[in-house]
Design a protein around this nucleic acid. Structure first.
Lengths: 225, 225
DNA sequence: CCAAAAGTGTTCCGTCTACACCCATGG
DNA sequence: CCATGGGTGTAGACGGAACACTTTTGG
């Protein structure tokens, strides 16, 4: 390979994944105790270095796959974090990504294997390096999107109840909303389809299960919550 | 310095600056013909490599300063661009930033010195590498912010007319708005203050000049357009 | 005197918000 | 039979959108 930029210095680049899940009415983040020095034993996001022949999005996908065995996950960039001393070890520029997964799709053996915990975002402990800032920023991005883009469905099972959807919305926004008004807005979106199925696990009466019809959405992408 | 991550590969990291200006009723971007191989002669954003002892925000500030002589400019990150083959020369991960400057603050000798052009964003030519994507994404971010944060004033002189402000708003959003409705919204924001001064350059009758009072804004940050 | 931009209010309509009660069922 | 979550409609307030004419003055 020809080298054009020989005179310039290279740096380590990593990706850090903020893996969001929704369970038990709460928004959670998957974190673990860091196994590597420095900062060994501290709570941390899961990350990895970007290979010199690897795209940054690919690196993020790889890291997520290593951790969860999941592919084709909704994942978006948060941004680059590059203060000189952000990592106590060496100079590392890190690019943060957030992923939205359905907690049920995540094999709990994998979780134990890596020693990970689903931590409610409300009581997130202090994390390694600037990882708390990454989470905060990711959450802010999600708050901006959740009313305008159909991202919630990535955090829910294929079939979900309206109560689940509402609780998720409230958990992300951090505020309660009126049930009737919420459901009215759902009714306006034809691509959120009611099925004949009933979920009896959440209540005695049972609640209708709904489904997100992606194809219908793409034809008329008018999501609004 | 202790090295903890010896086994990992380093890569070149650059910053690219999307410098926005507003002039002649149009939103413009400062671009130049690339002087370096590969891609020498192609239109390009201005960028620079991140030093190994330099924060990425600092690198962006430095690049902007080298180019314009300006400091303390409104500048925000767009995101990291890291496809393996994005740069035809070598593997480079680039972090894009956008800056908002008042065209009048920019010394045109500097402009000639670096061979730069203010190019209307509407007819931006094809740029080097993935720079067009960077500009698109920066514009999208601005469109999201211009109604909710007082960023417009970075693109205008200290004193400006409401017509200028409106034209800028329209240029960023890409659509015309009603003059009376626009001005009504301005009236609701006490931190946009009318001065006694009149600008006669834009019309025979003359238009009142306004000023953004940052202190007043910080006390009641309720910007809404 | 006329062209060109500045400036100014009102009405209407649609959207958002607030709000309370009955239903179905498992235990 | 009762506790628990599921499900439904309306009225009033508010905010956004549409809309046209008068003013000033330089040339």
């Amino acid at each position: 390979m020809t080298t054009y930029y020989e005179a310039y210095q290279k740096v380590l680049v990593s990706v850090d994944c903020i893996i969001f899940g929704f369970d038990d009415g709460e928004l959670k983040v998957l974190i673990g105790k860091r196994k590597m020095s420095p900062g060994c034993g501290q709570w941390s996001l899961y990350g990895g270095f970007v290979g010199s022949d690897e795209g940054i999005d690919d690196a993020a996908d790889r890291v997520l796959y290593q951790l969860t065995g999941l592919k084709n996950i909704y994942m978006r960039q948060v941004g680059a974090f590059g203060k000189v001393d952000r990592d106590p070890g060496e100079r590392v520029i890190s690019i943060a990504y957030y992923a939205l997964i359905n907690v049920k799709d995540y094999d709990s053996r994998q979780q134990e294997l890596h020693g990970l915990e689903w931590m409610p975002i409300k009581d997130l402990p202090q994390l390694y390096s600037d990882h708390n800032a990454m989470v905060r920023q990711a959450l802010k991005i999600m708050q901006g999107k959740i009313s305008r883009e159909p991202i919630s469905f990535n955090l829910l099972p294929k079939l979900f109840t309206l109560t689940q959807l509402q609780k998720l919305y409230e958990a992300v926004c951090g505020e309660k909303v009126d049930k009737r008004n919420f459901r009215k807005r759902i009714k306006d979106m034809d691509f959120i389809e009611r099925t004949e199925l009933i979920d009896k696990t959440g209540s005695k009466r049972g609640a209708s299960l709904y489904r997100f019809n992606k194809k219908a959405y793409n034809e008329a992408p008018n999501f609004k919550l």
